[in-house]
């Protein structure tokens, strides 16, 4: 089972620790603040009040046995740099660090951080994207040129089969899945719907209004499909 150590239990760190704990991974959560540590006890495998800048204490805690560390102490830049350096020296394979700004990120790279995250910036970009294109729900970057997007099927495509639409031939875009709301009648007389996912739909599958398509393709081609 994967083991994680989360250092810094502010909003981001505690959310990561909580999410990993709820997925039943082994999680060691560390913070200087006793209150923060108490809040996460019982959700993670172990929660410890400790100054993580103390390399000796980290070593004694057996941190070197963990595969991945998440350092979430962006408010105290110096501490996050020191901890990252210590974790890499202890031999952790993957150290993920929350950064505050570009300079912070640059220094973290130099001291060996394997991945740097800007949660607020990433969230802000996603929110901006969703506001700019309300019919695009998600974008996953596969490479610099290709991605997977989740979008509401353009009206023009409704009531046609994938075979008729020939998205692959015309745009070199693959429909990986279709998310569909399937209505049903509840015992109290109201209608509701449940979501059904059609994985790897075939040419005979017909799109209905409101279907959400998961598409894989080159960004330029995906853009063309978005504009249909």
């Amino acid at each position: 089972m994967k083991q994680f150590v989360v250092i810094g239990l502010g909003r981001f760190g505690s959310s990561v620790a909580r999410a990993l704990g709820e997925k039943n991974f082994e999680v060691l959560a560390i913070d200087r603040d006793e209150g923060r540590v108490k809040e996460i006890e019982g959700i993670v495998s172990q929660a410890v009040v400790m100054d993580a800048t103390d390399e000796k204490a980290l070593r004694e805690l057996g941190i070197a046995d963990f595969e991945t560390a998440i350092v979430s102490m962006a408010e105290t830049i110096e501490d996050s740099i020191m901890i990252t350096l210590a974790l890499k020296e202890l031999g952790l394979k993957q150290v993920i660090v929350k950064a505050n700004n570009e300079l912070h990120s640059k220094i973290l790279r130099k001291v060996g951080a394997d991945r740097i995250v800007f949660p607020e910036r990433e969230m802000a970009e996603k929110l901006a994207e969703s506001l700019a294109s309300p019919k695009i729900f998600d974008i996953i970057e596969v490479s610099k040129t290709h991605g997977i997007i989740e979008m509401v099927a353009p009206k023009k495509l409704a009531n046609k089969t994938l075979g008729d639409l020939k998205l692959r031939i015309k745009y070199n875009v693959s429909v990986i899945a279709i998310k569909r709301k399937v209505p049903y009648s509840k015992p109290n007389g109201t209608t509701d719907f449940k979501e059904e996912v059609i994985i790897g739909p075939g040419g005979s599958d017909e799109l209905i209004p409101g279907d959400v398509l998961i598409l894989l393709g080159n960004y330029d081609n995906l853009e063309k499909v978005k504009k249909l």
């Binding site: 509401v152 709301k181 209608t191 509701d192 209004p209 409101g210």
Partner: peptide, 16 residues
């Protein structure tokens, strides 16, 4: 129920 059904239909069309 009128507005509930409207909500359901709009939600199904992703008109959030």
């Amino acid at each position: 129920k009128l507005y509930y059904n409207l909500g359901i239909a709009y939600e199904a069309l992703s008109e959030k």
